[in-house]
């Protein structure tokens, strides 16, 4: 088993952090994991990518991810600005942070399209428009590839105290929404 995730967002949205936390959580689940950023000269607001590989064996490739199984779009203003869907497997899944439904979004792909208002949830629960961890919870709810418990553990280890607790609540909420298959 090898699953590849590509995360798109903008500098300052925790795109790289999300990838790192995914890798830590997957390892916690007993899987092999590798995460790395797109190595741009990152600055606030610029398009940023990060990559995650999760497998049941050691992964040695250092190449970027061109044909992801899963895409996470943290910033929906990137859609149309750059080819975020590039290489997405036809039977893959793209998760977008938006208040729109997948139909309203109208992405040109045969892959499954899922949406969640992650920024809205993050604002309500965490109090900041940083949607990365909320999307991680949603991802776990949809795919089950990484357990929500492991995600919460890795997030709490990174963000101590109240911040970690609030993030955990947002993760849990997004997880429940997506696991039930209903949109918020």
């Amino acid at each position: 088993m090898l699953k590849e995730i590509r995360i798109h967002g903008r500098g300052g949205q925790g795109v790289v952090t999300a990838a790192e936390l995914f890798a830590q959580a997957a390892f916690e689940d007993g899987k092999y994991a590798q995460a790395f950023p797109s190595f741009g000269s990152e600055r606030m607001g610029a398009p940023v990518q990060s990559f995650v590989r999760i497998a049941d064996h050691k992964v040695t490739s250092r190449s970027q991810i061109y044909e992801p199984d899963y895409l996470i779009i943290q910033d929906n203003t990137l859609i149309g600005a750059i080819d975020v869907l590039s290489g997405l497997k036809p039977d893959g899944m793209v998760l977008v942070d938006t208040e729109m439904s997948p139909e309203e979004l109208g992405l040109k792909t045969t892959a499954e399209v899922r949406t969640i208002p992650a920024t809205k949830i993050a604002l309500e629960i965490i109090g900041r428009a940083v949607q990365n961890t909320t999307l991680m919870g949603a991802f776990s709810g949809i795919t089950g590839l990484i357990s929500v418990e492991a995600i919460i553990k890795s997030v709490k280890e990174r963000f101590l105290g109240e911040v970690g607790e609030k993030n955990a609540l947002a993760i849990k909420k997004a997880y429940e929404i997506m696991r039930g298959g209903k949109r918020a």
């Binding site: 990838a19 890798a23 390892f27 994991a33 590798q34 995460a35 790395f36 950023p37």
Partner: peptide, 12 residues
């Protein structure tokens, strides 16, 4: 060690 590719990679 390869800059970024290894310095910034997270793995076990």
């Amino acid at each position: 060690m390869d800059g970024f590719i290894l310095t910034h990679a997270f793995e076990p």
